[in-house]
Amino acid sequence: MNVEQVLFWCAVGLYGVSAFAYVFGFIAEKEKLVGAGLATAVLGFAAHTASIALRWISSAVTPFITTSESLALGTFMAMALYLALQASTRKVRPLGVFVLPVVFVLLGWAGTLRAASGSQLAPALQSGWLWAHIVGASIGFASVMIAAALSGLFLLKENRSGGIYDRLPAPSDLDRLAYRFVAAGFIMYGLMIVTGALWADQAKGSYWNWDPVEVWSLVSWLVYGIYLHLRITMGWRGRRLAWYALAAVVVMIVSYWGIPFSVETFHKGFRVEHQ
């Protein structure tokens, strides 16, 4: 096992410990345990960052190509956004109770799919659009993941008070913050779809190929479009929208990684064959 792999599995392990600390800290209302969860998450993020950097340095190919690498990048962005939010306010510290278990499971799954990195990038992937596409996809995922976590906190806070709940922001603030993250995620998703269409047009001459992942990405993007319309046009707020955001993030995870894993698609780890 090389250093990069050791760091990767350290990150998985630390995220697992962090998830445990967050969940049990929240259930037992022990703030110190929640604080320990954050500290372990920071350590896990450092190992996660180092493993991606080492893979990038040791390989001739950008490490965001295979399904495993895509999962590692998505979770990396989610953690980066989560920690940035933690640095900006102490009020949403228990957010990790939703974020860390998901990150732990996704990164652990990525670990089971890991393969040696390629020696060269396939010609179809030698495009500047690939960067914008991947950045849009990973930040989009990170945003809606945080939005779902905020919605989860909203549902927990809604009818409870005392102890750890009193230190959470007001439900209306959580609701509004979740909406902002959904809107940001919607834009980044849009960037992913637009640049993906331009990239497909450049490589295959067709901006849209009705590929299962393309269609599912459109579906999940429109699911968030409906969220925004339900809020802005139909006036939905609070509980209903919070449940919607939690369901939407599941659709999103399935469309990103579940569909490429289960059906034959152009996006299966971005392995574009060309004979």
């Binding site: 009705w210 299962p212 269609v215 599912w216 459109l218 579906v219 429109l222 699911v223 479009g225």
Partner: peptide
């Protein structure tokens, strides 16, 4: 919108 989405999902799955 939901009908179009349903058609898309059926089409690719």
């Amino acid at each position: 919108l939901i009908t179009v989405l349903a058609c898309c999902v059926v089409g690719v799955t």
